[in-house]
Design a protein around this nucleic acid. Structure first.
Lengths: 201, 201
DNA sequence: CAGCAAACTCTACAAGCGGGGAACTCCGCA
DNA sequence: TGCGGAGTTCCCCGCTTGTAGAGTTTGCTG
């Protein structure tokens, strides 16, 4: 009889032959949509559609939406280690090195969208907020060369860098977006250096 | 017969006697919820509940959710004019005056929540984004004392201030929140002054 | 080659959303 | 005194959301 138990089904259903790459496709679409619209604004269905996949697969691979978000952020990031490299630079050039590394983080295709996603999700998820705090501050201010005394100055430097990055990539404020990367580093590195030295006042 | 046409109605319905203050109650609740959860996160129903009022009243007074948001932001704000005052200060003290005024904007009960609401709604509403841009940058950089040449430096100062305010009030980064207002002004005013002077490099 | 786990599709649900409309009551004014 | 409009309630609609589950096909391993 060649029984068709579910005659309403349009697509065959069942596992596809060969390497599917579906998981990665979902992660890609999720990264893009989370970074564009934030956690709330990116629906599971939209992400699935973006990956050309059934929404149920997201549940299958990641459990729930939180799991997906966590996977996006943790699976594909080397955010923290890049900053760590920068802080081992020559102390006299530290301001420049940190500034350059920090701004590059926002421009690189593998880390930039993640930071954007974190910023845009700060409202919705406390996880996102604390991860962002961690990236922004702790990773810098708990670096070995920071004595407890100076952590406040480091935080000010980090806040400055964050403000510039947000103006450039989130708010897209005209004068800031018009700088080239190098120009921007030239403009603010000296100030960052002063904060790090404690000579900013 | 004392006809009761709608016997299912629990509350009487119809206008209440006396001054209701309902419109203001809605505005209050909306300001609070928008600032806590952003545009998307604050539902019309939740705002109505917060005001102790039927959701349909929001539609009645403000048309739709966008209208409510616009009303919240425009009705009760003197954000821009406060900054204008600051920029007329003595040029030598400009950095300090602007820093003080800007940070106060985030702390004052009538303007702080609005800025928070704008920041938290940046993702959802392009209106919010452009208003924030306006408050953050344009209002400062189009001030009369800014020659075109310097607008980039002004934008950098504004980005710095924004970063500090965001770290303090949105991300709540520990070292930054621990400063008193005056300490914070002491810490960053000199840098703002340098940006404004163009002596930051 | 048997059988199980993984990958995949469809359908569905309960909840929440923004918006709209009908009905009712009170106030201010002619 | 009558009447229109503002304030208020309830009910409802169509849509989207996250999540759930059952069923189907494939690949892998023993």
């Amino acid at each position: 009889m060649s029984a068709q138990i579910s005659p309403g089904r349009k697509n065959p259903g069942g596992r596809r032959p060969g390497e599917s790459g579906t998981r990665d496709a979902i992660l890609d679409a999720a990264l893009r949509l989370f970074s564009e619209h934030g956690y709330d604004g990116a629906s599971v269905r939209a992400i699935a559609a973006g990956a050309g996949v059934d929404p149920a697969l997201i549940r299958h691979f990641f459990g729930d939406k939180d799991g997906l978000f966590a996977a996006v952020v943790t699976d594909r990031t080397a955010v923290t280690q890049r900053l760590s490299q920068a802080v081992s630079a020559d102390p006299d050039e530290l301001g420049r090195a940190v500034t350059d590394a920090y701004l590059r983080l926002w421009e690189a295709p593998d880390t930039g969208p993640i930071l954007l996603a974190l910023v845009r999700s700060v409202t919705a998820s406390e996880t996102a907020a604390s991860m962002l705090r961690a990236v922004m501050i702790s990773r810098i201010s708990t670096a070995p060369w920071v004595e407890a005394e100076r952590s406040r100055h480091v935080a000010l430097a980090a806040a400055h860098l964050f403000g510039v990055a947000a103006a450039r990539h989130v708010l897209k404020v005209a004068p800031i977006t018009e700088f080239t990367h190098d120009e921007l580093v030239d403009q603010i590195a000296p100030t960052i250096q002063r904060y790090l030295d404690g000579t900013h006042r």
